[in-house]
């Protein structure tokens, strides 16, 4: 994929229930987009930064998770990390199509052909 920020990320926002989503490139550059004022791009950038700082919390020896999901009363935050350094984060409303499709979305992100 030439540029996931232009080609892949915007399509994710079209799913009903997605509040915001973002990508972190291996070089640390962040790209966030939102469809709901409750979670603006700046907040999404913060989430991605915080994830970077807390990854060891979820990673045991030789046991990196495929993804982690924080479930809250009014939303879910899904983080997906790839061995090549790309991260994906998405915030969705619970009990929506987007929430139901989080796993398939995560698998899709993991299998994307991405550059540096």
């Amino acid at each position: 994929m030439k540029d996931p920020v232009k080609e892949w990320l915007p399509v994710r926002l079209n799913h009903v229930g997605v509040l915001a989503c973002g990508l972190r490139r291996p070089n640390g550059k962040l790209h966030s987009q939102c469809s709901d004022a409750s979670c603006p791009p700046a907040a999404m950038d913060n989430l991605l930064r915080q994830l970077d700082g807390s990854r060891t919390l979820f990673t045991g020896p030789n046991l990196p998770p495929k993804w982690v999901t924080f479930h809250y009363e009014h939303g879910q935050i899904r983080f997906v990390t790839r061995p090549d350094g790309w991260y994906f984060a998405v915030v969705v409303r619970p009990e929506t199509d987007a929430a139901a499709q989080l796993d398939s979305l995560s698998v899709e992100f993991i299998s994307l052909q991405l550059g540096k």
Binding site: L19, A20, S38, C39, A43, M44, N46, L47, Q50, S54, L57, F58, L63, P65, K66, W67, V68, T69, F70, H71, Y72, E73, H74, G75, Q76, I77, V91, D103, S106
Partner: peptide, 26 residues
């Protein structure tokens, strides 16, 4: 530590009470 991290995330993007963390391993 998970509870603390959940609170930090929630301060960024207010989503109500934290319920649980789900970790999917291979």
């Amino acid at each position: 530590a998970v509870a603390q991290q959940a609170a930090i995330f929630n301060s960024t993007c207010s989503l109500g009470h934290f319920d649980r963390l789900d970790i999917q391993y291979p």
